[in-house]
């Protein structure tokens, strides 16, 4: 006897309608708006969380859906940050929205060029190559001091008020909304992409690349496409980061940033988009709390959280929640 994972009268209708909006999907946005009004955390921290969500979402597209593991995703975050920053610092391109899109576009183009080569490889070779790419980018930014400010960082970034009205105030009241709206658009795009036939074919590639080739799928092209989109979104996160802080350092390209975003996503759960929300929220809150309580060895506590996740919640926190809900439903039935 086989167990049916889903039970439905009409399988076609069930699968067709599975991508419809669920009421629970309103939750993260309600929470985000509530944070603005109730401010249980500072809005500055909120902005950090939102930027991390965008970055994690971009990673989820390639890792959670395409099955591409990377240790160099900060390269595209950094590209977005530096391009947006340099446009302002050197060329006086201070308009925020076009500056953001310009940074993201360059990051996307860079993702396309590098992805074309990187994605010919997989497994350990790909992991090492993405790692090398990240390190090379950081080194490149270090030596091109004239443009990037090198080790001292890129200063002189001036961002105009959004629509000429909303300034980057010290409490981040305006930039919280700016980041939230950006997050919402990025999320909408991601959700549409993963629920499209293209998105389903990415899952096919993740589950069985050889079979996808055997049914006539141009696997390399598909992966390069999603890699480019992912790099564009990572660029948005980086550009926001540069605009919020009005300052860019080599840190945006660091290996630690690539590693951290991977941890954030795995913590929340890969291949489900909302994992990026849960992971970013939990990671940054825990980091913030631990850093306040134990300034000297907060990373130890974070490591402990990660070990627990890896041991007991293989599917991430969200995966664990899903299993729990399914378990409760079975008890009821």
């Amino acid at each position: 006897m086989t167990t049916k994972v889903y039970d439905a009268e009409n399988p076609v209708v069930f699968l067709r309608d599975r991508t419809r909006w669920h009421w629970a999907e309103a939750l993260p946005w309600i929470v985000a708006v509530a944070i603005f009004f109730l401010q249980p955390i500072t809005l500055n921290l909120g902005v950090q969380i939102l930027i991390t969500i965008i970055f994690a979402l971009s990673l989820d597209l390639i890792l959670g859906y395409g099955g591409v593991v990377t240790l160099g995703h900060a390269a595209y975050f950094g590209a977005g940050a530096y391009v947006t920053g340099m446009l302002s610092a050197h060329l006086g391109w201070n308009e925020p929205i076009s500056g953001l899109l310009a940074g993201a576009t360059v990051a996307g183009a860079f993702g396309f060029a590098t992805g074309w080569i990187l994605l010919r490889y997989h497994g350990l070779a790909l992991l090492m190559l993405t790692l090398a790419l990240g390190i090379m980018m950081a080194e490149l930014a270090n030596v091109t001091e004239v443009w990037t400010g090198g080790f001292d960082g890129l200063s002189g970034i001036v961002i105009d008020p959004i629509f000429g009205i909303f300034e980057n105030d010290l409490w981040r009241r305006n930039y919280y909304w700016y980041s939230l709206i950006a997050t919402f658009f990025v999320f909408l795009a991601c959700r549409r992409i993963v629920n499209s036939a293209f998105g389903r074919s990415l899952v096919g590639i993740r589950e069985n690349t050889e079979r996808m080739r055997a049914i006539g799928s141009p696997v390399h092209l598909r992966l390069v496409t999603i890699y480019t989109i992912s790099a564009f979104m990572a660029g948005i996160a980086g550009a926001l980061f540069a605009q919020v802080n009005a300052y860019v350092t080599l840190d945006v390209l660091s290996f630690a940033r690539s590693g951290t975003i991977l941890i954030v996503l795995v913590l929340g759960g890969t291949g489900r988009l909302y994992g990026a929300f849960v992971g970013a929220l939990v990671y940054i809150l825990v980091e913030d709390e631990l850093a306040k309580e134990y300034p000297a060895y907060w990373e130890l506590g974070l490591g402990f959280v990660l070990v627990l996740t890896a041991l007991f919640f293989r599917q991430g926190l969200l995966g664990a929640l899903e299993s729990f809900v399914r378990f409760c439903k079975r008890l009821k039935a």
Partner: peptide
């Protein structure tokens, strides 16, 4: 259809 990444998969079944 697997090239299409904007419209929802299998919506018209």
């Amino acid at each position: 259809k697997n090239h299409v990444f904007w419209s929802q998969a299998w919506r018209n079944s």
